[in-house]
Design a protein around this nucleic acid. Structure first.
Lengths: 167, 167
DNA sequence: GCGAGATACTTTGATGTCCAAGTATTTCGG
DNA sequence: CCGAAATACTTGGACATCAAAGTATCTCGC
């Protein structure tokens, strides 16, 4: 499984040799993809015992953070930046697991409210503990390195218009 | 679509308030996931006109870098760190597009060799040009920032045993 | 207060990824 | 040189994501 060299550096050398441009960006993009793959794998493995994956955990965490433990489907999609159809799918799965319920909003019958149930809160807590236990898949990085990384990526996210900055 | 605040910072505040641990790692992991989502979307959009997505482009690039323009399926999976089944799927798609052909290795009949065809080389060139044109989806970052990011992530990848370091 | 258009969600279909099981071929101990 | 185990790939099933079309409900101008 483990390679004898860094495949990204190797690709970078070939890339440059070919005269294909933007080689620094190419290596950065490829590195992000690879690290994401590793981290996501670790996270999903840690959550699997609780009948969760990262998407479902994120929804439960988001709901547990609200005052009333419920949110419209649309708000969930906005916050987690996923497609409405994915929210429907995820909530259905959580409902099957007995972690949330769905109901129509009385003030706007188009809106569907997802509400977290006690088993959902328990699962979220277990999941959070499990994720803290594995340092969110980033055990090899110090808190300082994590902060640096987060800040560097926030600059990028802000520049792309992912969210509005205070300024 | 654009939020009025950084959802990751917001999640971080809630996370800390709950006393859920590893909050720095949590924000870093979430940031990586989000940036990966943005970058991958841009990359796939840039490659779509050439009947490619990033996975298929990576395979074509890898094949074009080899002396003979061919590799066993297994080697492709090792290099790109993807499951053998995914390689089969990707190569089938590339074959349908007329970009590669498959053939048995005469020296080991278990092995299947994927070979890049002239249209595949042309597509790889077009894809590389398109990706350089959009700076691999990282236009907002300078080459120096990219290098910094790559190096930081390489430390992590090496620490996870993703590849063997020279030392 | 009516009807066009906007909004909120679900459904359906196309993709892509992984795992586990299945097939074919090679290797290797005795 | 025979058969068990290893290797290389493919297939089938489970899931997740997205886009586009469909349904229900609300808003707003006239």
């Amino acid at each position: 499984m483990t390679l004898e060299f860094d495949p990204i550096e190797e690709a970078g050398r070939n890339w440059t040799q070919r005269g294909w441009g933007a080689d620094e960006a190419m290596k950065a993009a490829t590195s992000i993809a690879r690290v994401q793959q590793i981290v996501q794998g670790r996270i999903d493995a840690a959550l699997a015992p609780f009948d969760l994956n990262f998407s479902r955990f994120e929804v439960l965490a988001l709901l547990s953070f609200t005052r009333e433990g419920r949110l419209p489907m649309g708000k969930i999609g906005d916050r987690l930046q996923v497609h409405a159809a994915s929210v429907t799918n995820t909530i259905q799965r959580l409902e099957t697991s007995g972690f949330v319920t769905r109901s129509r909003d009385d003030h706007d019958r188009r809106t569907v409210l997802a509400r977290i149930l006690p088993p959902g809160r328990a699962a979220a807590q277990s999941g959070a503990d499990a994720l803290a236990e594995i340092d969110f898949g980033l055990r090899e990085l110090s808190a300082a390195s994590c902060r640096e990384l987060t800040e560097g990526l926030a600059v990028f996210r802000a520049a792309t218009g992912d969210f509005v900055t205070d300024g």
